[in-house]
């Protein structure tokens, strides 16, 4: 099968062998996040096409694929940040709109203007806006909660800094703290490790692992193939269409990666990864 991809080149025509024709697929059950038949298109070019995906509870899932494969699109469309052309989204077996309060989203750091006049504390409190409502005041308990979330990401001392004074890693931590403040059950992160320092990456992973231990679901768009095995236990491989999904041990394989990345992934790199998998 891999042979055929390599010889037939790009794009890989693998859907049939991966069970894609069996739609409608299994019911979403009460998975934290499930999408069925999701298609999103910019103009007339689908960015993701007819995706089914199910992300399990109490685990960390990575969405993996090459640039332009629709990773962020999948995430954004799943929570209604961008409109879907077709398909359904279930969050804990409920339609998206009913389950909003259980979702926390961490957008890409680069998607906002960090010169915006606001402080670290203000940003974290944004996570509480839905709870506070339009007229409510942020109570002492809520402030304490926001402070606690900052503490969990190691940013307690920065509460009153202007966000423009933060380093990239610190910005990412603040975004994570904001998501924590929401008290959600499903965390969706868009490239949380892009351009952050090693210490921040460590801190973020620690927080996410605690979330997982608390039974929450974490779904992250992830770029760095070398850390997938260390960080995640579930992967979703995507290249416009679903390539494969499942536990890391069985799904994060050389074949699937080859199918996802096509000729773009150097053979040596794949070997390294599979060796890493062998070592485990």
């Amino acid at each position: 099968m891999i042979q055929s991809h390599l010889t037939r080149g790009w794009p890989p025509a693998i859907a049939a062998t991966q069970g894609r024709t069996e739609r409608p697929a299994e019911l979403p059950g009460d998975a934290p996040l499930a999408v069925r038949g999701l298609t999103v298109s910019y103009g007339e070019k689908p960015a993701v096409f007819s995706l089914d995906a199910t992300f399990p509870a109490a685990s960390m899932s990575a969405i993996i694929g090459p640039n332009g494969a629709g990773k962020s699109t999948l995430l954004k469309a799943a929570i209604g940040v961008i409109p879907r052309l077709s398909g359904e989204v279930y969050v804990f077996a409920q339609p998206l709109e009913k389950a909003r309060a259980r979702i926390a989203y961490v957008p890409q750091r680069a998607s906002v203007d960090w010169d915006f006049p606001t402080t670290v504390m203000d940003v974290v409190q944004m996570g509480l806006y839905r709870k506070v409502g339009l007229l409510g005041r942020l109570s002492g308990a809520m402030n304490a909660r926001a402070q606690d979330c900052l503490d969990r990401v190691g940013m307690a001392d920065f509460a009153h800094r202007q966000i423009g004074q933060l380093s990239g890693g610190q910005q990412q931590r603040v975004f994570l703290a904001r998501a924590l403040a929401q008290d959600a059950h499903l965390f969706l992160l868009d490239e949380p490790f892009a351009g952050v320092d090693a210490a921040t990456e460590r801190a973020i992973i620690d927080v996410l692992k605690i979330l997982k231990a608390e039974g929450k679901a974490v779904v992250a768009v992830h770029h760095d193939l070398s850390t997938v095995r260390d960080y995640f236990d579930h992967v979703f491989l995507i290249n416009v269409r679903r390539i494969a999904e499942g536990p890391v041990a069985t799904t994060f394989t050389t074949e699937n990666l080859q199918a996802t990345y096509g000729g773009r992934l150097a053979a040596t790199h794949l070997d390294e990864l599979s060796m890493a998998s062998g070592a485990r």
Binding site: G80, A101, I103, Y105, P107, S111, V112, D113, M126, R130
Partner: peptide, 16 residues
């Protein structure tokens, strides 16, 4: 809501 949208409209949308 207006601060949220002005600062981070994606996040605002995600919050509903």
């Amino acid at each position: 809501p207006m601060t949220l949208v002005a600062f981070d409209s994606d996040y605002a949308a995600a919050m509903g």
